[in-house]
């Protein structure tokens, strides 16, 4: 299945070969961005973010504009027709009639897949509910490939809220398309990966270890992917206070890691990575965000023009 006119709903809808095809287009675009500056001239993307987002929304808008395309953006829910009581279905129908592709984020699980059913034009899921964020996984995998020259055979640590964090869950599922040496799932007990994610890892034959402490595996890791543990996820605030130190990455912790360990983060970061880490050799999250624009450029071009 090619990319042309394809909905991008879950990383699980893709095969490894398809992601590799995408990555080769990203490589090409990075080498010579100006050659693609009018690739999507005459195309219009609608961004519909029912949940607050800066990074992903701007990343997609930047990607579209850099390819010579145009963007319309649905206002925040409070200022849009949703506030007047319009349902999701009608909103999607309207955006579909106006644009060539819809980039959507919504807090409801499965909303992107439903939007893709309603819309005739392709829909890109920019995060729905707690489950899927496929383009984040694509850019995370691409970043690893760029920095390490491979995705297979590496030890990964995924740190943070693995239960509700859709970026972490999507990356874990995306890694299962490749052959990681091992994935360390580092989280508080109460925020471990959901059963279906664990089941998917097992069915894919991926070696994984669940642990509560970064210190236990830091020396093994080639890639450390940090996400935030949100205070509001804990029913008991004292439990949060007790564990929060274990989920805050500092230079002290990193010193026990490999020389060429890379630290990634989907951003925005709050306080889960100490600012002192930013200037270290490990920190690659701002490069990751930059590469994300190229990944989305390649994706938009493949979807709209093939």
């Amino acid at each position: 299945m090619g990319f042309r006119n394809r909905d991008i709903i879950s990383i699980l809808d893709f095969r490894r070969e398809e992601l590799e095809e995408l990555f080769s287009v990203v490589d090409e675009m990075r080498k010579n961005p100006s050659a693609h500056s009018s690739a999507l001239s005459g195309y219009l993307m609608a961004t519909a973010f029912f949940e607050p987002s800066t990074r992903t929304r701007l990343s997609f808008q930047t990607a579209m504009l850099r390819l010579g395309g145009s963007v319309i953006d649905m206002a925040e829910v409070q200022r849009s027709s949703i506030a007047k009581g319009e349902n999701f279905t009608d909103t999607i129908r309207m955006l579909d009639a106006y644009s060539d592709v819809i980039a959507i984020r919504h807090k409801i699980d499965g909303s992107a897949r439903y939007a893709a059913e309603i819309a005739e034009n392709p829909v890109i899921n920019c995060g729905d509910g707690k489950k899927n964020h496929p383009t984040q996984a694509m850019l995370d995998l691409y970043t690893v490939k760029t920095l390490k020259n491979r995705i297979d055979g590496l030890n990964y640590g995924i740190l943070g809220d693995l239960k509700y964090g859709r970026a972490a869950a999507s990356l874990i599922l995306g890694l299962a398309l490749f052959r990681p040496e091992r994935i360390y799932l580092i989280s508080p007990e109460s925020l471990r990966v959901r059963p279906e994610v664990r089941e998917h890892l097992e069915n894919s034959g991926v070696d994984y270890v669940e642990t509560t402490r970064i210190e236990d595996c830091i020396s093994e890791l080639d890639v450390l992917y940090v996400t935030r543990v949100q205070k509001e996820r804990f029913p008991d605030p004292s439990e949060y206070e007790r564990v929060k130190g274990s989920y805050r990455l500092t230079l002290d912790i990193l010193r026990a890691g490999k020389e060429d360990l890379v630290v990634l983060h989907p951003l925005p970061r709050v306080d889960e990575i100490d600012f002192k880490v930013d200037d270290s050799k490990y920190a690659k999250y701002f490069l990751q965000a930059k590469l994300g624009v190229f990944v989305r450029m390649a994706l938009l071009k493949l979807i709209l023009r093939g």
Binding site: N87, F88, T89, K107, I108, D109, G110, S111, R113, Y114, G129, K130
Partner: peptide, 11 residues
């Protein structure tokens, strides 16, 4: 939180 449980949507 599934989209099929949202009121007012024909799904």
């Amino acid at each position: 939180d599934c989209v099929t449980n949202q009121p007012g949507e024909p799904i």
